[in-house]
Design a binder for these strands. Sequence first.
DNA 1: CTAAACCCTGTACCATGGTACCGAGTCAAG
DNA 2: CTTGACTCGGTACCATGGTACAGGGTTTAG
Lengths: 139, 139
Amino acid sequence: MASGLTIGQLAKMASVNVQTIRYYERRNLLQPSDRKVSGYRVYGDDALRQLRFIKNAQALGFSLREVSDLLNLRVSSVARCGTIQVKAQAKLRQVEAKARDLRGLVRALQSLICTCQAGQPTDQCPILQKLDKEAASGR
Amino acid sequence: MASGLTIGQLAKMASVNVQTIRYYERRNLLQPSDRKVSGYRVYGDDALRQLRFIKNAQALGFSLREVSDLLNLRVSSVARCGTIQVKAQAKLRQVEAKARDLRGLVRALQSLICTCQAGQPTDQCPILQKLDKEAASGR
DNA sequence: CTAAACCCTGTACCATGGTACCGAGTCAAG
DNA sequence: CTTGACTCGGTACCATGGTACAGGGTTTAG
């Protein structure tokens, strides 16, 4: 089939905005495989795969900058799988740390909510009092 | 003591940038208690408490918009503690959801890393292959 | 053949949380 | 009284991940 998609068709298939695809192009994340004489971008269906790659990596918490790095690694197959593993591990540590922070935050919020009794005026609210002093006990 | 701090002194005491304080003022988060004839902002040490409040609430995951809401609640003490409790609970649910997502992400990354053997060229890397297909199994 | 629907480039704009620079006025120490 | 540090308001800029619009050219269906 080797399609030959226009940017609009690609956008629809990937459920993204046309502008977003052009934005990804500027960010060096996704290049059209060709151009028509008219200047229209032409994409193969590898473009769709790559677009999904980008979205998947984003969903895994990689920034577009990091996605770009990942894609460059893939292109230069001099790079070894280990390089990617190292990147993924670094990202894992980042994400783990963030998850821990959020757990602490959950605990802090929970304890604030527990001490709060709904009927009091706000100037006696223990949540606000706590924020006034020193919060974020989970860290 | 009731200090009478300049913006620079306040900034130093709270370890924030002077510009940040002015930015907070624009965002209705922190108003100077007075102005000198020269136009210089004058802050009482309640300002320092309020600045810490802001930073604490931020650390708990509240956006500046939400912090502003919180502060407005505190000012209008017609509002009841329950209002704040509701807000804190809503934020708690948000944060819990985010924490769950992140743990899913951690699991997805871990499983990707496990299947990856460091010596292979990138075009056979299971992490990249996985990203090519469909990742984010944790969702 | 015409009109709608699409595409092009370039630029500006959105939110978020700040940071930096400008020219001018003010304050405090020596 | 001067000089350097501080402050003022206004505006522009940073990164991030897009989105929108203007003013054209192209393609395609009727």
